Computed example of a mutant assay.
Amino acid sequence: MPTTNGLDASFELTKHAIALKAQSIDFVMRYYSHNATKNLSLAEARALSDAGLEIGVVWETSGTHSGFFNRLQGLADGSAAYQLAANSIGQPAGSTIYFAVDYDPSLADINSPISAYFSGISDAFDTASNGASSYRIGVYGSGLCCKTLLANKLAEMSWLSQSTGFAGSKDYASSQSYNLIQYLPTKITVDDGGDLSVDPDATNGTRSAGLFTIL
């Protein structure tokens, strides 16, 4: 499969969908969270899909420090993300929900609170689906975090953060072990002449990124 180009944004892209596709954007990454103004909506998902854009999603609230992560938080976030995907968006089975680890964690952080968090997500998915989870679990984070969680089978997919100074990130990028990779922020001009501040992303041409469209 070819490498495709995309972007991630924490704001609604409905009115820009056609313009983004015209600028050779293939997919957009949007959010699930407790903040409705940040979240992908059903209307937006339909507009993006109708414009020919694929969609990816990431759950992110406060995952910027080790104290946020634990099993109970994983259970809560996994359940909330699953319900948004299944009941609000109709996200197709087999696609991915990424969960953000948005800092540079130590290996001790990854092996203890972060692993407990992702174990909680997995259990929440199993509970929500009666043991037949519809969605794949992905991690957004450093190279070390992505590599470790995948090796320990706590995540199936990885989205490598743009922060090249994070532990293991340069090696992970060089190895092309990621499903998605994020680049440094940029601005793109859209149809109304304004600029959007976004983070560019790309898929790995040898791996699925768990993206989707809806009807």
Rank of each mutant, 00 (worst) to 15 (best):
G52K: 00
S175M: 10
T203I: 08
S41P: 01
D77I: 00
Q73D: 02
S115R: 05
I121K: 05
T61L: 09
I97E: 03
A167L: 13
L160V: 13
G56N: 03
S24Y: 13
D171Q: 14
D199C: 05
N87K: 13
L180V: 15
N111W: 02
V28C: 04
S133T: 13
Q182R: 14
A209K: 06
T61F: 10
F212H: 08
N152Q: 14
S106D: 04
H34E: 05
Y135F: 15
I55R: 03
E44N: 08
G120M: 08
D77Q: 08
L42N: 12
R46C: 04
D201W: 06
F212R: 04
E12Y: 02
D104E: 05
T203Q: 04
L72N: 12
A9G: 01
A124N: 08
A202P: 03
P105D: 03
V57I: 14
A86D: 10
G141T: 08
V190E: 08
V139H: 02
D109G: 02
G63R: 02
Q23K: 14
T189K: 08
T61Y: 13
T164A: 07
A209Y: 09
Y31D: 10
L13Y: 01
A173D: 09
D192L: 09
S161G: 01
S129H: 06
A209S: 15
I25M: 12
D104Q: 06
L154T: 13
D126M: 07
S24A: 15
S177Q: 13
W59Y: 15
S106M: 03
G143M: 05
I214Y: 11
G120A: 05
L13D: 01
T206K: 02
E12F: 02
A116W: 07
A93T: 07
H16Q: 09
F99K: 03
F69Q: 02
T3Y: 10
S177Y: 11
T64L: 04
S49F: 00
K153Y: 04
R30Q: 09
A81Q: 06
S197R: 07
T189S: 13
D171N: 13
D77A: 03
Y183A: 12
I89P: 03
A124K: 09
E60Y: 13
A116H: 10
A209E: 07
V58Y: 01
P185W: 00
